[in-house]
Design a binder for these strands. Structure first.
Lengths: 358, 358
DNA sequence: TTGAAAGCGCTACCAA
DNA sequence: TTGGTAGCGCTTTCAA
């Protein structure tokens, strides 16, 4: 008796004990295991309130929580979404990740997160992620070969690319309208009277950088501006810094630089200033993304936003759609960005330019 | 025959099909299901190479991969680590997360990531994470009540706090030596001849900010400096910006500010500059963390680093230890930071100061 | 409204 | 070296 009391007390302490199963609860509550399961199943099915109470009480005493793994096993549904992200540290992505997590948690999906190391391609990570029977896979800041994408999709797990596109009918994607964004940058720079333009690219084989450049180039061509220059960057501060300085060595240095993302634009500004070049008085700089740092007082970067919240919403809808009906034809959704005017492009400033966050 | 070939080809295409089980493979290879399991089990146990070949071939043809959920079910081991992170977007944490992922993936652990929304305390997230039978839980940038921590630990799942401490013998933690860091900041500022010091705190109930302030205050006291001022921030750029400006309204404004993290220090610098105050000529600023942005040309922030890589290594060792022997007594490990000298503190600059932005 | 029993896809033990 | 078989902890029929 005393022994039993001690035991009970001990159990009270442990809010959750991973070794307690529904059978233990059933015994203690004097009901069948099926009944315990019913009490904890989502639809709250037919269980008399008297029995439910007893089961809940027993669960509390024992520190019982249903084993999610076992539940997955019998429902053949994990409610887990895999997210595959290569560079979390690139300032645009932490926000994306946080937002995805919140939205997914809100619809009772958990997130299994994978990241690709340098020596490991995303293609290799795919089979791994798939072994966990994820309901869907969201791939972000990583390039997937179209073969791998197709193979995966045909295996029955929906794959959605975020901010990347791949030319395969079996892979959905949501991304910013990078082509339009590139055109917009060209117009902004030309309209404000710049005459020698430059572009600093991101990693060359990313669709994002390619499309931004293509839109930019196309629009410049349309408006009769042929001689612009380019440099290759790697989406990093340092590469933007170096590329901007190298641009200064042109026979006729540019008077405006369009960077494939904000972080390179910020690097570019610092690179230019380190050489005594004023921004925007001597050289204008425009970025892409509108990360928080773009609003920092030292930069006040004029840029083209990515409407992240909207993009994420659409990604999740698309995902849910494809979980429902995996064999519908795929589509790519493009979300238009907006021009965010701060003060790194001259002759463009709207009113007072202390657009400082805070 | 032709039919068969077609089928085989089709199967070759599907790199992975989630509906194929080991029984299907067994049938096709003409072996028992146990044998298939053996071929895919980690220890590569006794299977003749002839049979192994046949099984592998069949698996390839069918697009088979072992179901990780089922494996967890029978081994009663998930190899999943839960990471609980409140603010991924705070610039220090993306790097932490990426590093954790890489290290954990390297030892064949997957990561289930949870984030706490504003309306959701970490304590509420705990039972959820635990349902997934994670091998361990790493809690970062979030404050856990000691009751919840204790309850969880006693439930059998090791909990390790990263960069937070809680006064409970059942919870391990790894964090920077914030006390020593605070002292160091005091010494640096005093040694370089500053006379009116200020501190901008982070979120008040975080051990991180408390310890940094305590170390700072203690050291100032030891060196006979009593009249320093403080402001409360929220670890954000905006709060640093505002706090610094408010500090300017003191009857005797400070000539040096110690900020509880880098992002507030950067905000502070911009806030000061926006008021025409020069850094470091008029006011010196020192931060804590050494995030990448601290090295950006516009700020060149002198700061105290957190040795993240080392902290993560230790967290993982500690975790592995506790997975092995969950009932060993807990400990808190503190990792000393280093002074990183750039040019936001005067009379301290080593080498050339290319602090340009104004 | 409740209970019994058959799986979910794997691992691991025991026999052969 | 292989195959048979008993679980892992749950959900979900089907009967009572």
């Amino acid at each position: 008796m005393v022994r039993w009391r001690e035991k009970a007390n001990k159990f009270q302490l442990s809010i959750m004990n991973r070794n307690v199963t529904s059978i233990d609860v059933a015994k203690r509550a004097g009901v069948s295991q099926s009944t315990v399961s019913r009490v904890f199943s989502s639809g709250s099915p037919n269980v008399s309130s008297e029995v439910r109470e007893r089961v809940l009480q027993a669960s509390l005493e024992l520190g019982y929580r249903p084993n999610a793994i076992a539940r997955m096993m019998s429902t053949r549904q994990t409610n887990i979404v895999g997210i595959l992200m290569a560079t979390i540290t690139s300032p645009f992505y932490p926000y994306v990740l946080e937002k995805f997590l919140k939205e997914l948690q809100a619809i009772d999906r958990q997130v299994l997160l994978f990241t690709a190391s340098e020596n490991q391609s995303v293609d290799d990570l795919l089979p791994l992620a798939l072994q966990y029977q994820v309901d869907a896979l969201i791939i972000t800041s990583a390039t997937l070969s179209s073969e791998a994408a197709a193979a995966t999709s045909s295996g029955g797990t929906p794959v959605i690319l975020f901010n990347r596109v791949v030319s395969d009918a079996n892979v959905c994607s949501v991304c910013a309208d990078n082509l339009a964004g590139g055109r917009l940058a060209a117009d902004v720079l030309l309209d404000s009277g710049h005459e020698k333009l430059a572009f600093i690219a991101g990693i060359e084989n990313t669709s994002t950088s390619q499309d931004r450049e293509r839109g930019f180039a196309l629009r410049l061509h349309e408006r009769g501006m042929a001689n612009w220059v380019r440099r290759a960057g790697r989406y990093t501060y340092e590469s933007g810094y170096a590329a901007a300085q190298s641009l200064l060595d042109e026979t006729v240095p540019p008077d405006a630089i369009f960077c494939a993302n904000d972080i390179m634009a910020i690097g570019a500004i610092d690179g230019l200033r380190a050489r005594g070049v004023r921004v925007p008085d001597d050289v204008s700089v425009i970025g892409f993304d509108d990360i928080p740092m773009a609003a920092w007082g030292a930069y006040n970067l004029t840029t083209i936003s990515q409407e992240v919240d909207q993009m994420i919403q659409q990604t999740i809808s698309l995902m849910l759609e494809r979980i429902e009906s995996p064999h519908e034809p795929c589509r790519t959704e493009r979300v238009a960005g907006k021009l965010v005017i701060r003060s790194s492009v001259r002759n463009l400033t709207t009113g007072k330019s202390d657009d400082i966050a805070g």
